[in-house]
Simulated assay, not measured.
Amino acid sequence: MATRGTARRAGSVVISQVCHYATTAAACGFAALLVVILKSEPIKELVTGVIQTALGLGA
Rank of each mutant, 00 (worst) to 15 (best):
V13G: 00
E41V: 14
R4M: 06
Q17Y: 00
G49Q: 04
C19R: 12
T6M: 04
S40L: 08
A22D: 08
A25T: 05
V50Y: 07
I43S: 04
R8I: 04
A27G: 03
L57E: 15
G11E: 04
V13W: 01
G11W: 01
G58Q: 15
S16E: 12
Q17C: 00
A25V: 10
R9W: 01
V13I: 06
G56Y: 07
Q17I: 00
F30G: 08
S16Y: 09
A25C: 04
A2P: 03
A2L: 05
G58V: 11
V13K: 10
A54G: 02
R9G: 01
I43C: 05
T6I: 05
I15M: 07
V18W: 01
L33N: 09
L33A: 12
A26N: 10
A10W: 00
A59D: 06
F30I: 12
C19V: 09
T24Y: 13
V14D: 03
L55G: 08
V47D: 03
T53H: 05
T6L: 06
I15T: 08
V35Y: 02
T3G: 11
A27N: 11
V18K: 08
E45L: 15
L57K: 12
A32L: 14
L46H: 05
A10S: 02
P42R: 02
V47E: 03
A2D: 03
A2Q: 06
G11S: 01
A7M: 04
T6H: 02
A27H: 09
T6Q: 14
E41C: 02
A25S: 06
K44Q: 10
V35P: 00
I37K: 11
R4N: 09
E41Q: 14
V47I: 15
T24K: 15
Y21R: 11
T53V: 01
I37W: 07
T53Y: 06
P42W: 03
L46G: 01
V50F: 11
C28A: 15
T3Y: 00
A32N: 07
I37T: 07
T48F: 07
K44A: 06
P42Y: 04
L55I: 14
L46F: 13
A54T: 14
Q52M: 09
Y21K: 11
R4P: 09
V47K: 01
G29F: 13
V36C: 10
T48R: 14
T48E: 14
T23P: 00
T6W: 04
V36L: 15
I15S: 08
L33S: 10
Q17T: 02
A26I: 12
I37A: 12
C19S: 11
V36M: 12
A27W: 03
V36S: 13
A32S: 13
M1N: 07
Q17S: 01
A59N: 05
A27V: 03
L46K: 10
V13L: 07
Q17G: 00
L33I: 06
K39P: 00
P42N: 05
I51S: 02
V14M: 01
A26D: 15
A32T: 13
L57I: 07
K44R: 12
H20C: 08
C28G: 07
E45P: 00
Q52K: 15
G49L: 10
I37Y: 11
L34T: 06
T48Y: 07
A31I: 11
V18N: 05
S12I: 04
Q52D: 10
C28D: 10
F30R: 13
V36H: 09
A54F: 09
S16F: 09
V36K: 14
A32R: 14
T24H: 13
A27M: 10
